[in-house]
Amino acid sequence: MFDLRECAHRPPIRVGDKWSGAVLRCLEGGPHRFTELKARLRGVNPKVLTETLRAMERDRWLTRTDRGGNPPHVDYALTDVGRSLIGVLDAACAWAREHHGE
Protein backbone atom coordinates (compact mmCIF):
# COMPACT_ATOMS: atom_id res chain seq x y z
CA MET A 1 0.00 0.00 0.00
CA PHE A 2 1.18 3.54 -0.80
CA ASP A 3 1.75 5.77 2.23
CA LEU A 4 1.68 9.52 1.54
CA ARG A 5 3.81 10.11 4.63
CA GLU A 6 6.73 8.55 2.75
CA CYS A 7 6.67 11.52 0.36
CA ALA A 8 6.19 14.22 2.97
CA HIS A 9 9.89 15.10 3.07
CA ARG A 10 10.22 15.31 -0.72
CA PRO A 11 9.38 18.37 -2.82
CA PRO A 12 6.20 18.11 -4.91
CA ILE A 13 6.48 16.92 -8.49
CA ARG A 14 4.87 18.86 -11.32
CA VAL A 15 2.53 16.45 -13.11
CA GLY A 16 -0.22 17.29 -15.52
CA ASP A 17 0.84 20.88 -16.17
CA LYS A 18 -0.51 21.91 -19.56
CA TRP A 19 2.66 23.51 -20.96
CA SER A 20 5.70 21.95 -19.25
CA GLY A 21 5.79 18.90 -21.52
CA ALA A 22 5.55 21.09 -24.61
CA VAL A 23 8.36 23.34 -23.33
CA LEU A 24 10.49 20.24 -22.70
CA ARG A 25 9.89 19.16 -26.29
CA CYS A 26 10.77 22.62 -27.64
CA LEU A 27 14.02 22.74 -25.67
CA GLU A 28 14.94 19.14 -26.45
CA GLY A 29 16.95 20.25 -29.51
CA GLY A 30 18.75 23.10 -27.78
CA PRO A 31 18.29 26.53 -26.20
CA HIS A 32 15.58 28.94 -27.31
CA ARG A 33 14.64 32.52 -26.58
CA PHE A 34 11.27 33.42 -25.06
CA THR A 35 9.90 34.71 -28.37
CA GLU A 36 10.96 31.50 -30.14
CA LEU A 37 9.19 29.39 -27.52
CA LYS A 38 6.07 31.55 -27.72
CA ALA A 39 6.00 31.19 -31.52
CA ARG A 40 6.39 27.41 -31.35
CA LEU A 41 3.79 27.02 -28.58
CA ARG A 42 0.78 28.42 -30.37
CA GLY A 43 -2.00 29.20 -27.94
CA VAL A 44 0.08 30.00 -24.87
CA ASN A 45 -0.15 33.56 -23.65
CA PRO A 46 3.01 35.34 -22.44
CA LYS A 47 1.92 35.36 -18.77
CA VAL A 48 1.33 31.61 -18.70
CA LEU A 49 4.58 30.90 -20.55
CA THR A 50 6.48 33.11 -18.10
CA GLU A 51 4.90 31.31 -15.13
CA THR A 52 5.69 27.92 -16.67
CA LEU A 53 9.32 28.84 -17.37
CA ARG A 54 9.80 30.23 -13.86
CA ALA A 55 8.35 27.09 -12.28
CA MET A 56 10.51 24.86 -14.47
CA GLU A 57 13.57 26.91 -13.54
CA ARG A 58 12.65 26.68 -9.85
CA ASP A 59 12.34 22.90 -10.23
CA ARG A 60 15.76 22.87 -11.96
CA TRP A 61 14.40 21.52 -15.23
CA LEU A 62 15.86 24.40 -17.21
CA THR A 63 18.27 27.28 -16.94
CA ARG A 64 17.65 30.91 -17.81
CA THR A 65 20.68 32.78 -19.16
CA ASP A 66 20.37 36.56 -19.47
CA ARG A 67 22.73 37.76 -22.18
CA GLY A 68 21.78 41.43 -21.76
CA GLY A 69 21.31 43.71 -24.70
CA ASN A 70 18.48 45.84 -25.96
CA PRO A 71 16.04 44.25 -26.47
CA PRO A 72 16.82 41.75 -23.71
CA HIS A 73 18.30 38.46 -24.86
CA VAL A 74 17.42 35.54 -22.58
CA ASP A 75 18.04 31.89 -23.47
CA TYR A 76 16.30 28.92 -21.90
CA ALA A 77 17.97 25.49 -21.98
CA LEU A 78 17.30 22.12 -20.40
CA THR A 79 19.41 21.03 -17.47
CA ASP A 80 20.51 17.43 -17.06
CA VAL A 81 17.47 16.95 -14.80
CA GLY A 82 15.18 18.40 -17.46
CA ARG A 83 16.80 16.29 -20.16
CA SER A 84 16.28 13.17 -18.00
CA LEU A 85 12.52 13.79 -18.28
CA ILE A 86 12.52 13.32 -22.07
CA GLY A 87 12.43 9.52 -21.70
CA VAL A 88 9.57 9.79 -19.23
CA LEU A 89 7.73 12.09 -21.65
CA ASP A 90 8.37 9.63 -24.50
CA ALA A 91 6.92 6.79 -22.40
CA ALA A 92 3.84 8.85 -21.48
CA CYS A 93 3.27 9.76 -25.13
CA ALA A 94 3.62 6.12 -26.20
CA TRP A 95 1.13 5.10 -23.50
CA ALA A 96 -1.33 7.79 -24.67
CA ARG A 97 -1.05 6.63 -28.31
CA GLU A 98 -1.60 3.02 -27.29
CA HIS A 99 -4.67 3.78 -25.18
CA HIS A 100 -6.13 6.67 -27.19
CA GLY A 101 -9.26 4.75 -28.21
CA GLU A 102 -10.04 3.55 -24.72
Results as ranks from 00 to 15, higher is better:
27 L>W: 01
51 E>Y: 15
57 E>A: 04
67 R>H: 11
15 V>M: 13
29 G>E: 12
87 G>T: 08
92 A>P: 06
4 L>R: 13
22 A>N: 07
18 K>L: 11
101 G>M: 15
12 P>D: 01
59 D>T: 04
16 G>A: 01
88 V>C: 13
12 P>Q: 01
36 E>N: 05
75 D>V: 01
58 R>T: 04
81 V>Q: 13
46 P>Y: 03
60 R>C: 10
83 R>A: 11
45 N>G: 03
46 P>H: 02
2 F>I: 13
34 F>T: 05
41 L>S: 01
29 G>N: 11
15 V>R: 15
93 C>H: 12
4 L>M: 09
93 C>V: 14
37 L>P: 04
35 T>H: 02
51 E>P: 03
95 W>A: 11
80 D>T: 04
38 K>V: 05
29 G>Q: 14
14 R>S: 13
29 G>R: 15
55 A>F: 00
97 R>K: 13
67 R>D: 08
75 D>N: 06
13 I>V: 11
44 V>R: 00
92 A>T: 15
54 R>D: 15
95 W>S: 14
69 G>V: 00
77 A>T: 08
100 H>P: 08
79 T>Q: 00
42 R>K: 11
10 R>E: 09
28 E>V: 01
5 R>N: 09
60 R>V: 13
24 L>P: 08
37 L>R: 02
39 A>D: 12
39 A>L: 12
22 A>M: 08
71 P>V: 09
47 K>G: 12
86 I>K: 05
52 T>I: 02
12 P>L: 00
28 E>R: 15
30 G>C: 04
41 L>Y: 01
58 R>K: 10
12 P>R: 00
34 F>I: 07
28 E>L: 09
12 P>I: 05
57 E>T: 03
72 P>S: 09
63 T>K: 06
25 R>K: 14
94 A>V: 00
27 L>R: 07
13 I>A: 09
51 E>A: 12
32 H>G: 04
102 E>K: 11
58 R>E: 10
64 R>E: 09
81 V>R: 15
71 P>M: 03
10 R>Y: 10
49 L>M: 06
31 P>Q: 11
25 R>W: 13
62 L>M: 06
41 L>C: 00
14 R>K: 11
86 I>D: 01
98 E>S: 13
77 A>H: 08
24 L>R: 10
26 C>Q: 04
88 V>R: 04
42 R>A: 10
46 P>L: 02
23 V>D: 03
71 P>D: 01
52 T>K: 06
5 R>G: 04
28 E>G: 04
100 H>M: 15
85 L>H: 06
69 G>D: 08
53 L>T: 00
93 C>A: 14
81 V>P: 09
27 L>D: 06
18 K>V: 03
34 F>C: 00
90 D>Q: 15
94 A>N: 01
74 V>N: 10
37 L>S: 00
39 A>R: 12
14 R>Y: 10
42 R>M: 06
15 V>S: 13
2 F>Y: 15
42 R>G: 07
40 R>S: 11
76 Y>T: 02
56 M>H: 02
50 T>C: 05
22 A>K: 07
